[in-house]
Computed example of a mutant assay.
Amino acid sequence: MKTLTIRLTAPLQSYGNEATFERRTTGDYPSKSAVIGMIAAAFGLSREDPQVTQLNDLSFAVRIDQRGSILNDFQTVEWKKGKPRKLSYRNYLQDAVFMVAIGSDDKTIDKIEFALKHPRYQLFLGRRANVPAGILKMQSFANEDPVSVLQKLDWQASEWYMKKNRREAQIRVELIADASLLPEVVDNRCEMVKDQVISFSQDNRQHGFRKVAIKQLKLLNPLFQADTEHDPISIL
């Protein structure tokens, strides 16, 4: 198996879960369906193209390197002329950084990496307005699965965030992966998430459930600064 890591960061990101027109919340991390949608856009696939659902076969894991904070956006929408405006709330993740890892055979991963570097359609992180903060930073690893790669990969948070946590030598982060990639995780750390792509069709968008496992990791902080011993009374 070959693995490709993708660093996802932007001023705003939003990864849909169960939502209504009036309130659209966001998940805490990129869903597999959102990443599949981004890859499909890079390939230039239509929403109804059968190749989209084939991307469900990719092995998938994500590491939350910088959790970010929630932004609540209030909107009024004039949905029909002469009708009362509708009220709507949208949630976004601010200043978050995620490390996504996808795994497959060498040929498939190479094609995906090339497509993400030369996308046919605009790439976005969950919603159309949420474009990546610059060129995607990617790295490929031969003969390794997504979990093994993310477990050893250096912490990829923003520099300002590392400095903010400079008193911590190790940072605890969360790894969420296909349950099959974390067989050692006990059942009470597994859950079902609804991000298996069935259809991206705007008329009949559907998602199925897949089982994921969750694991806590400790990563070294490269900007760690130990507290210096200082006794202010000693100068008196």
Rank of each mutant, 00 (worst) to 15 (best):
L8P: 06
S59F: 04
I112K: 03
Q51H: 12
C190E: 15
N72D: 09
L87H: 04
G68K: 01
V147W: 02
D154Q: 09
D110E: 02
N17Q: 12
N56G: 09
E184F: 04
D28Q: 11
S14I: 07
A226F: 10
L8R: 05
W155E: 08
I176N: 11
T9M: 10
A101P: 13
F114T: 06
V131I: 08
W79Y: 12
E48Y: 01
K164S: 13
F98D: 12
Y92V: 01
H118E: 10
D73W: 05
V149F: 07
A40N: 05
F43S: 01
R128T: 10
F98A: 07
S46W: 11
L175T: 05
S140L: 01
R128Y: 11
I70R: 08
A34M: 14
S140K: 06
P183Y: 14
L12M: 07
F74M: 01
G68L: 01
A101R: 08
T20C: 01
S158K: 07
K80H: 15
Q156K: 13
Q139K: 07
L125S: 14
A10Y: 07
V77L: 11
R24M: 12
E184H: 02
Q170K: 10
F224W: 11
S104F: 00
K211T: 13
V100S: 00
F209D: 03
E48A: 04
S88V: 03
V52S: 05
F209A: 06
N72F: 01
